[in-house]
């Protein structure tokens, strides 16, 4: 009896709780959007989400607040992100194909090394990497950010793709081999088209991680001309020019639009990627 009553009560209670939690979770984002449309003196002391006055100047002022228009940093970030995505897709899929389908000496050993590097903190390699890239005169270019991806240092994606290729029926490549296809053709014509979901997951995670990445971009990009979005946003706080919170919030909103779109269109792949591999 009591459990019945409890059960009947619990569904609305759960909904109420979930809606409340949903509001708490989304509040910071909503507050950011609302604040980006408020005059500075209203941002603080007003935790509410109702707009009294609409101030769109924040956006135009924020856009021009730094040494280059904000679009410049958006373009820089886009270049880095595209480079990283292409690098990861090409190099990780190649390595994954070798690990999943080819036999070679030392395979187990190499595979172990690959797995071992997945969880390696970047800090134990960043100093020598920095020394190497500064000797190559690559500091303040995008190369230190993109070249590691072209060389498949994101082993996480190799692992993801190996798991995916292992799930593909081997009969397909065997049939192709009987027809005289070599491995490059099997890889390009059969395996790659079949692993589209894994490639989509890789693309979307690379996009989000690179767009948000701060540590390496902070280290390698010190020339304001080369700033990407996160480094530019951070310099808002630093800059002695008194930039208003309103324009900072406006550019915050602008910087998150691509992430929002990625979430909107790629949610399926994000959730699948996380559920199978535990991505951050």
């Amino acid at each position: 009896m009591t459990t019945d009553v409890l059960r009947r009560l619990s569904a609305p209670a759960k909904h109420a709780g979930l809606i409340l939690l949903g509001f708490v979770m989304l509040y910071p984002v909503l507050w950011m959007v609302v604040s980006s449309l408020r005059p500075d003196d209203e941002i603080f002391r007003s935790p509410g989400l109702v707009l009294d006055t609409l101030r769109t100047e924040n956006y135009s002022q924020g856009w021009d607040a730094l040494s280059s228009p904000f679009g410049h940093y958006l373009i820089n970030s886009t270049i880095v992100v595209l480079g990283c995505i292409i690098g990861n897709l090409v190099s990780c899929s190649m390595a994954a194909y070798a690990f999943a389908r080819l036999e070679f000496t030392g395979k187990r050993w190499w595979f172990g090394i690959m797995l071992g590097t997945i969880m390696l903190p970047i800090h134990v390699i960043i100093v020598p990497q920095y020394i190497l890239f500064s000797q190559l005169d690559w500091v303040n270019t995008f190369l230190p950010l993109i070249v590691p991806k072209i060389l498949a240092t994101d082993a996480f994606f190799i692992f993801l793709m190996v798991q995916f290729i292992r799930g593909l029926p081997r009969e397909l490549d065997e049939a192709a081999r009987i027809d005289g296809c070599g491995h490059p053709r099997i890889f390009l014509r059969i395996v790659l088209p079949l692993m589209k979901p894994a490639l989509a997951t890789t693309t979307i995670f690379t996009f989000i991680w690179t767009w948000n990445d701060f540590f390496s971009q902070l280290i390698y990009l010190t020339d304001p001309e080369m700033y990407t979005v996160p480094v530019a946003l951070r310099s808002f706080v630093d800059s002695t020019v008194s930039t208003s919170w309103g324009s900072l919030f406006a550019m915050n909103v602008v910087s998150l639009v691509p992430i929002f779109l990625a979430f909107l269109f790629g949610q399926r792949y994000l959730v699948r990627g996380i559920a199978t591999t535990g991505g951050k």
Binding site: P28, V29, W211, N212, P230, V231, L233, F249, L256
Partner: peptide
Amino acid sequence: LLGASVAAALV
């Protein structure tokens, strides 16, 4: 998704 971003930390 906003997790480690500068934007989230600024908010």
